[in-house]
């Protein structure tokens, strides 16, 4: 049983054509998808953080505590198994590449608040094999904990370390259960959702509300009159790893 090279080339050529056809269709479908929501979108949630304000009250963890409480975020003692929605990261780690030998003393080793950036072009969404994470029309990168298969591909894709996996059962590690919000189970990924359940009720995210220094400002980028827009007009801000093209929507005032 032999097959001539010419036959092979023929078959290979056909397969190539078929593949090309499929990707074109895929691209077309995608273009349609993107066009649809743009028409009605009037909201683009974002956050502006003022790290200097945040540093005013030393050791303050009010925002973290508030978030952990309303979302039943478990407390794992083992650093390897930690589940974090919002937390503080030393400046050098939060803004890798931004440090220099003379990094302003105001920033060096100073903790910076970090959480999900709700990217405009989120790599985690791109890689998820089940659409368990996706970008909503209002820009929130949402999680469906009912669908997540726990493959952790999104964690590999996230360049900000914003996603946590439940390596063990989180229930026994939740300091005070709040029945209003479901917990998660072992084997699913979780992260900040910009408090979408509070936004639905017209409330601000828990961290924003809890901050005594008003260092976090949340709002709608599509509204030119919003506070976030005026802050962005008045201050120079940076974002984490902008060179990766993820378009993070958390802005830090410098």
């Amino acid at each position: 049983m032999t097959i001539h090279r010419r036959t092979f080339l023929g078959v290979a050529g056909l397969s190539a054509v078929a593949l090309a056809g499929k990707s074109t269709i895929g691209a077309l479908a995608k273009a349609g998808e993107e066009a649809a929501p743009a028409a009605g979108a009037a909201t683009r949630w974002a956050m502006v953080i003022d790290p200097q304000r945040c540093l005013r009250k030393e050791g303050c963890k009010d925002c973290i505590g508030a978030c952990d409480k309303v979302h039943n975020v478990p407390l794992f003692k083992d650093k390897d198994h930690e589940v974090k929605w919002i937390w503080k990261e030393p400046f050098e780690n939060a803004f890798t590449g931004e440090e220099n030998p003379y990094t302003a003393e105001a920033l060096k080793d100073k903790p910076v608040l970090v959480f999900c950036n709700h990217c405009d072009n989120p790599p985690c969404v791109r890689v998820c094999p089940t659409k368990a994470t996706w970008k909503r029309e209002d820009g929130i990168v949402m999680m469906d904990w009912h669908r997540c298969i726990g493959c952790r591909y999104c964690m590999a894709a996230c360049p900000y370390g914003s996603r946590s996996f439940n390596w063990l059962d989180p229930r026994p590690r939740i300091p005070a259960l709040d029945p209003e919000f479901p917990t998660r189970t072992k084997g699913v990924v979780e992260k900040c959702t910009f408090c979408e359940e509070r936004l639905a009720k017209g409330e601000q995210p828990a961290c924003v509300e809890a901050c005594p220094e008003k260092a976090l400002v949340f709002g709608n980028l599509d509204d030119p009159a919003s506070e976030v827009r005026s802050l962005l007009r008045e201050h120079f801000t940076i974002r984490r790893k902008p060179e990766l093209g993820t378009q993070p929507e958390i802005y830090y005032i410098v």
Binding site: G26, K30, R126, V127, C128, P129, T130, K131, A132, R147, C148, I149, G150, C151, R152, Y153, F165, N166, K186, G187, V188, V189
Partner: peptide, 18 residues
């Protein structure tokens, strides 16, 4: 897999971008 019982979700919700 963290949730092996849900593995079929990959087929139930096919995601060609992944």
């Amino acid at each position: 897999m963290g949730q092996p019982m849900r593995i079929l979700n990959v087929m139930l919700h096919p995601t060609p971008g992944s």
